[in-house]
Simulated assay, not measured.
Amino acid sequence: MVIGSPRYDAHALRGMAHALFTAAGLEVDKAAAVAEYLVEADLMGHTTHGLALAGWYLQGVADGVVTRSGAPDVTSDRGAAARWDGRRLPGAWLTAQAVTLACDRAVQFGTATVVVANSHHIGCLAAYLSIATDRGYMVSVASSSPSGQQVAPFGGTKGLYTPNPIAYGIPTPGDPILIDISASITTVNMANRLIKAGQTYDHPWLMDKDGTPSQDPQVLKDGGTLLPTGGLDHGQKGYGMALQIEAWTQGLGGYGRVDAPKGTNAAVTVQVHDPAAFGGAEAFLRQTGWLADACHANPPRPGVARVRLPGEAALARKREALERGVALFEGILESLEPHAARLGVPLPTPVA
């Protein structure tokens, strides 16, 4: 976004997105979930994974890549552990349903895991964490895409897997800690944004096809790859993280790269813990509260105003956006104009 960007009412943005996806043919509850979690990402400032994805999703619906209606096939259910075939239903709806079910099951079992194979893209992982943290539960959401190959294994040069993000929600006596990280330094969506703008990265976070570090996202068009988290120096850390997420999502789901799925595809694993089943909810908050306070009290290094917790800036952006309006990244609303015209849905007007 740029300084002075127009702001839009969050409710109006959700209404627009809901109308677009309903008109495109998604069932009402699916359209509502996609609208909710795309706008939630923009509220938190994760602008590459918010409404910036809406046009791509809408095209996927039009092309038949996204399943418009129905429910996942429950292929295994042991109470505390379940596996779904997502049937390429909207990832936002599937993920929200999975987190909600895991929370409900955690009441009985203390912890619950839901694995979703064959989902469509799920967007911003951090957007789903509050479903659990609002109930006082600790949650993780991991995702990989069996049909993508933009990151090379550490020491290699050919793309093998995707950025493989994972997010954690940790309740505290105050705001929750919201961690959203990936096994690669940057993401495909950010690289595509820079390519479109004719810009490069500030640091060499990619490799060209020969393994030479690069700042130019254009190398991805010619066999280049995203560097793993840790880069050329400590990239074995991101590499190990990626392999764990591949096994945790595609491995547990029993459907992944070996099956060579076509089109946009995601594998998702959700896990929820109820602290009351372990050391107790009060004891849990006592520990996480101390940790949060200790981080905040830590002396900042030069150039840093104060030590923040993961997710703190995102929650502050969300509060500001709800009060003043959402400042969408430049070009996002314009990218939806052809879809809005095709589907007969008006775009919202700025509030400021």
Results as ranks from 00 to 15, higher is better:
Pro163Cys: 08
Ile166Thr: 08
Ala167Leu: 04
Ala167Gln: 01
Tyr168His: 14
Gly174Tyr: 08
Gly174Ile: 04
Asp175Trp: 10
Pro176Lys: 01
Pro176Glu: 03
Pro176Leu: 05
Ile177Pro: 01
Ile181Gly: 04
Ala183Leu: 14
Ser184Asn: 10
Ser184Ala: 15
Ser184Pro: 05
Ile185Phe: 01
Thr187Gln: 03
Val188Phe: 15
Met190Asp: 13
Met190Ala: 14
Arg193Gln: 15
Leu194Ile: 09
Ile195Val: 02
Thr200Val: 06
Thr200Asp: 07
Thr200Gln: 09
Thr200Trp: 02
Tyr201Phe: 12
Tyr201Gly: 04
Tyr201Asn: 00
Tyr201Gln: 00
Pro204Trp: 11
Pro204Ser: 08
Trp205Thr: 02
Trp205His: 03
Trp205Pro: 02
Leu206Val: 04
Leu206Phe: 02
Met207Glu: 10
Met207Pro: 02
Lys209Arg: 04
Asp210Val: 06
Thr212Asp: 13
Ser214Val: 05
Gln215Ser: 04
Asp216Ile: 12
Asp216Ser: 07
Asp216Cys: 06
Asp216Ala: 10
Pro217Thr: 11
Pro217Ala: 05
Pro217Asn: 01
Gln218Asp: 13
Val219Ala: 05
Val219Thr: 12
Leu220Thr: 14
Leu220Pro: 14
Leu220Gly: 08
Lys221Val: 00
Lys221Trp: 02
Asp222Tyr: 03
Gly224Asp: 07
Gly224Pro: 11
Thr225Gly: 07
Thr225Ile: 10
Thr225Arg: 00
Thr225Pro: 07
Leu227Lys: 13
Gly230Thr: 13
Gly231Thr: 03
Gly231Ser: 13
Leu232Gly: 12
Asp233Leu: 14
His234Thr: 14
Met241His: 03
Ile245Met: 08
Glu246Leu: 11
Glu246Cys: 09
Ala247Thr: 15
Trp248Met: 14
Thr249Gly: 00
Gln250Leu: 03
Gly251Ala: 10
Gly251Val: 11
Gly253Glu: 04
Tyr255Gly: 02
Tyr255Gln: 09
Gly256Arg: 00
Val258Asp: 13
Asp259Met: 07
Pro261Ile: 03
Lys262Phe: 05
Lys262Val: 07
Thr264Pro: 06
Ala267Ser: 15
Ala267Cys: 01
Ala267Asp: 05
Gln271Pro: 01
Ala276Asp: 15
Ala277Leu: 02
Gly279Gln: 07
Gly280Gln: 03
Glu282Cys: 03
Ala283Cys: 12
Ala283Leu: 12
Leu285Lys: 13
Gly289His: 09
Trp290Met: 11
Ala292Asp: 09
